[in-house]
Design a protein around this nucleic acid. Sequence first.
DNA 1: ATCAAGATTACCT
DNA 2: GGTAATCTTGATA
Length: 199
Amino acid sequence: MISEKLPREFYIRDVLTVAKELLGKIIVKRTGNNIFSGRIVEVEAYDGNIDQAAHTYIGKTPRNEIMFGPGGFLYVYFTYGMYFCCNVVTGNEGVGNAVLLRAVEPLDGIPLMAYNRFRKDDVSPKEYLNLTSGPGKLCKAFNITRTHNGTDLLGAEIYLLGADDIPENKIITGTRIGIKKSVDLPWRFYLKDNPFVSK
DNA sequence: ATCAAGATTACCT
DNA sequence: GGTAATCTTGATA
């Protein structure tokens, strides 16, 4: 099967639809001779219109303006003084919605991910499962930072590849992690029994 | 100018 | 189970 880049239309849709369909898709990052890729196994949706936990709930600011742009761009933010988190913007221009990529299953570039995370290229089985099993971890592994905020996912550096949709019975829905507002919205989606889902 | 909070993680008991 | 680490952001003055 040859996978193709997800088209703009994939992203210009309802954030909950995109969030669920992002499960199983492949994120690729190419820089020079290096290539990273991973299969998306856990996501969360954020909708600035009704969701107090979304960065866009307060309206447009310098930090969140990418989220108000058209879908298919990357929104990367810095948090807790230490970590970056990586989001896929969805919907039309003017809509402040995005999907947080919370965990991926490593595919290509595993030794490089290991170096980025642990400063070594051989990892124990336990460390392997810990490479990309969280939003801050996967950004560290892929070396995604503030310079990637606003990256067009239809460009050459970072993009997503299509894959078969995941059957509904393999998707677990739950409440989001690490937030203090709108805590009851069931907008976290992850692959059942996947070992790379965050804890 | 100052401040509190934060879409997290690693390490501790 | 708990919490320290670390710094940007947006709000208030």
